[in-house]
Simulated assay, not measured.
Amino acid sequence: MDETLATAAEHAAVDTAGLSGLKFSKGHGTGNDFVLIADPNGALSVTPEQAAALCDRHRGIGGDGLIRAVPSRLLPEGAALLAAHPEAEWFMDYRNGDGSLSEMCGNGVRVFVHFLIAEGLADLPAGESLTIGTRAGVKTVVRTAAGYAVDMGPWEFIFPGEATARAMDSLVSADGLEVARPALSVSMGNPHTVVALAEIAELDATDLFRAPHVDPLPPHGTNVEFVVPSEPLVHDGVGTVTMRVHERGVGETLSCGTGACAAAVAIRHWAGQGAPDVWKVAVPGGVVGVKFFVAADGHEHVELSGPAVIVASGTLS
C-alpha cells in the first residue's frame, strides 16, 4: 500500500468520539466529494487524525477531503487576507483525505459556497458573486444557471525558466506505463504535474492506486494529471481533453478542479499560438469548464465552472 494511503488508513482507526454530536453535510463537485462542517464561532478543533477518520470510506463518512467553514477573522491565514479583501467573510479551511492541510481545491470551492448557501450562512442570487478566503488567497465565485464559476486566479509554472521555451520540466513514472513520460508542472495555488498521453486506451491502462513518481518533485509534492487531447483538439472554438488524476494526500479521485485547470494550461501551452481560451475537461465524474481571461490586475487568470451538489446532512453519533 502507498505510504500516504497506509497513513490515512491508520488515522481512520482514531476514535472520533470527541466530535460526537457534530453536524455535517456531504457534497461533491463532479464526483470529487467532501465532508463539510460549519464552525461560525471558530470553536471546533479537528485534528489531522480525526479529519482522516471522517474521510475514511469504510469507517467514516467518506470523502476526498474535509472542509470547515469558519469566519476569516478567526484564522490567522484568513485574518491576513481581510486587510486587502474585507469582503472575504468566510474562509475555506481544507484538509486532504489523509488529514494534511491543502492550499485549496477547485471543486471544493464550489461545494463550499453551495454549503454556505444551504446552511443560511451566505446569500448568493444567480449572477452575483461571493469572495471567500483560502490558503491560496481569495477566490471570487459567481453563481450560474448550471452551478458556479470560480476565478481561480493566475497560473504559473512551478520551475523557473522562460515559458516560451518550456516544453517539459520533469519525468513521471506510473504503474501501467512502460516508460517514464515527460511532464510539465503548473501551479494553480497548489502544485500539479501534467502528463500528455496519446490515446484513451493508454489512459485507461494507467494504474493510479499508488502515487506516480515525479522527478524532480515540486517542493511541496504534487498532484499528477494524465491527459488525452481530443481529436480534433478544437471544435467550434472549444478545446477538449480527457483527464484522470492522482491527488496528493488522497489518491485517485473522480475529479480535480485545479487539476483540470492545470491540464488546460499545459495542453494549451503545448498546442502553441492560436490555441483556444475555452476548454472542456472530461473527468471520470463529469465535465468541467475552464476559461482563460486577462483580469483587472493585468495577469491571465483561469476560471473553473461546474456543478456542486449537497447529497446528505447528518449528525455524528
Rank of each mutant, 00 (worst) to 15 (best):
T206R: 07
D204N: 14
K139G: 12
E303Q: 15
G153S: 06
S129Q: 14
G298S: 04
Q50P: 08
A8F: 01
P229Q: 05
G286A: 11
M168E: 15
G239C: 00
L5M: 14
A118M: 11
G259K: 02
H11E: 12
R59K: 15
L101N: 07
L184C: 04
V172G: 00
D39K: 01
F157E: 07
A13S: 12
V250L: 08
G78A: 07
S305F: 10
W279C: 02
G127C: 14
E202I: 10
G147N: 04
V290Q: 00
H269W: 15
P160F: 03
D64P: 12
A88W: 01
P40E: 06
A53R: 06
V302N: 02
H301Y: 06
A51D: 12
S185R: 04
P276Y: 00
T164S: 15
H58L: 05
M188Y: 05
A295F: 00
G189C: 05
F115N: 13
S255Y: 08
D277N: 07
M92P: 08
E103N: 14
H235M: 06
V141R: 13
N41F: 08
E3W: 10
F34Y: 02
I37A: 06
C261Y: 11
I158H: 09
A69Q: 06
A83D: 13
N107T: 12
T240W: 02
G286M: 00
E252R: 14
A260G: 15
M188K: 02
V278L: 03
T193P: 04
E49Q: 11
V309E: 13
F293G: 10
A80Y: 11
E77Y: 11
P71E: 08
P229M: 07
W270D: 05
